[in-house]
Write a protein that binds this DNA or RNA. Structure first.
Lengths: 130, 130
DNA sequence: AACAAAGTTGACGTTAACGTAAGGCATAAC
DNA sequence: GTTATGCCTTACGTTAACGTCAACTTTGTT
């Protein structure tokens, strides 16, 4: 990080634990827009903030396309009510999906555990009969 | 289901809520082996049992390849200790993965909820200032 | 000047689990 | 006999998020 607060692609990769390919990919998908010094990309503080949001979105299970839309809404006019609302709705929907997924997972875990208990008994039986 | 207990592909689809493509795909992947009457597939009780196991495996998050191996182990010699053990190990590993996934999901849900609460307040504020 | 290190732009490859035609028998109904 | 189904095989298409070259240009180092 130099005086003007700009970072090279490698510094970004080290800082956020991503590959150059990933950063270029996000740029191609219009999720970030680093400035250029000649042909080299230089990432500003703002770019880093966006990347943070992107990575967080991914942890939440949003697709890059979802994230792009939310970022654009966010950026265009921070105070547009309708846009904030639609971002909000999107997030709520995602939350429901995540909760459903968690519930299904919980059920599957319980079932698999039961299965394993039964299987463990069968293995023990086979071993005993050996 | 006729006298000999065999079902056509369509009956199978209706019974298990899958598409013909799916059944043929599973067959190509050597997960099921329906007999033929001419070129037509006919599914036996045994095939249905396997399909049940396949679908259950999918709910557990196993890949078709995992499932294939487990079915083969299961079928070859029901009482081979080493084989049962490896199936068991695979299942235990999968269980761990599922539990990890559930935990991460739980965290992400909590984070997203917090985010939404904050967002809700901002929207409310914007609406009030409107 | 010469060479290595870092960055750039294409562009094809990967993975899983099917979807989706396209074109062709075959059997069942009318 | 012919239309209407139903089934068959073959094979390319799909989706997401990058990975993995290849072939250059640019920059830094000695």
């Amino acid at each position: 990080m130099n005086a003007s607060d700009l970072m090279t692609i490698r510094e970004m990769c080290d800082a956020f634990d991503v590959t150059p390919r990933t950063l270029r990919f996000y740029e191609a998908k219009e999720l970030i827009r680093p400035e250029r010094q000649g042909s080299r990309r230089l990432y500003s503080r703002r770019d880093r903030a966006r990347l943070k949001l992107i990575l967080r979105g991914k942890r939440f299970g949003f697709s890059l396309e979802d994230i792009r839309q939310m970022l654009n809404l966010y950026a265009r006019e921070g105070s547009n009510l309708a846009q904030m609302q639609s971002t909000y709705d999107l997030a709520r929907e995602r939350l429901r999906l995540m909760e459903d997924q968690r519930d299904e997972l919980e059920i599957a875990i319980a079932e698999l555990k039961a299965e394993l208990d039964a299987g463990a008994m069968m293995i023990a039986a086979a071993r005993a009969a050996d």
